[in-house]
Structures are given as C-alpha cells and as structure tokens.
Amino acid sequence: MGEFLNIFIKSAFIENMVLAYFLGMCSFLAVSKTLSTATGLGLAVIFVLGITMPINWVINELVLIPAELEFLRFILFIAVIASTVQLVEMLVEKFSPGLYAALGIFLPLITVNCAILGGSLFMVSREYNLTESIAFGLGGGFGWFLAIIALAAIRERIRYSNVPPAMRGLGMAFLITGLMGIAFLSLTGIDPAVFAGWSETVAE
C-alpha cells in the first residue's frame, strides 16, 4: 500500500505530467478556457490513463517481451488507447450529452493526448510492475486533472485583466504554464516515502 501511495503522490505532484514533462500540452492549452469543460476533460483523462496503463502493461509483459516483438509496441499501445477512447466517447455521449457537446473534437483527441501514450512509454522505460503502473496511471491522470483545473481557473480570472492585445488568450496561457512549471520545479527531489516513513532509504 505504501508503495502504491508513494508512486501515486510522486506522479501526481512531483513528476507532474504537464508541468514537469510537458506532456498533453495541446488539449491542455486549448480546452482550458472555461473551468467546466476543463473539469470534464480532466476526468476523462484520469479514466483513460487509469484503464490503458494496466492493459498496456499486460500486453507489454505477457505478449511483446516473451515474443520479442518490442518494435510493435507503438502500434499495439496506440490501438489499445484508441479503442478505450472510443469506449469513453460512447459512454459520455449516452450519459452526458451536454459534456459531449462541450468537449467536441477534444474527446477523440484524447487518443492523441501525449500524456496517455507518454505514460505508457514511461511505464516501460521505468520498468514498473502491475501495481505500480496502476498507481502511475491514476496518479498521472490526477496530476493532469489538477493542472488543467488550475490553468482554467487562472485563465478565467485573467479575462478581467488588461493584457496586451497580442498576448491575449494563447500567449498568456503559454506564460502561465511556464510559471506554473517553474513553481512545480521546487518539488523535484522530494521522496514522499521517506517523509511518511514507508521506506527507510532514499530512492534515487
């Protein structure tokens, strides 16, 4: 349990997908104009990331590595992600048509959200086990959710400020994200496990 929480907290705050690795920027910048759509997209990302990560782990460990087919990794991972997103799209359309209309093109674009595929690729390169990859998926998604909500809230406020015309909208979004990224840098190197006494040694 300690290990699970450790990776969850680490991937949500210390190694935040958006603010530390800058993954999933396209939809992060484009859908963060209002808080409500940002919340919907954030929840969808948590869901997709949480589901695809363990599936991709199973495919990678039980199919690709024993059969020595690692070069097929990209194609299989993206196929899993695309079908999961299609599933989410159908569910959202059925249960929440308002959210479906609000998300528009960005729901299918979760497929090409770098955070999802990037998460799976990081999982492979960091050699996580199944529990760890579930924690990484949920934590990474939660971190992405928090970041997009924060940016959307700031952008809603900044509409009342006197920004130079050429910087309105996109320009300010880039600047704010950069500043948030620098703020999150101060968290690097913290090991939650050591703080909470789950582990005695400092992990690298």
């Binding site: 800058f22 050429a166 910087m167 880039f174 600047l175 950069g178 840098l185």
Partner: peptide, 14 residues
C-alpha cells in the same frame, strides 16, 4: 529548463 521553451514560444506569439 523546459519551462523556458514556454516563455520563448510566448514571445514568438507576441
């Protein structure tokens, strides 16, 4: 730092 790319692109946009 990666964040610098954000600032540089923001300036390009400006």
């Amino acid at each position: 730092l990666p964040a610098a790319a954000m600032f540089v692109i923001a300036v390009f946009i400006w």
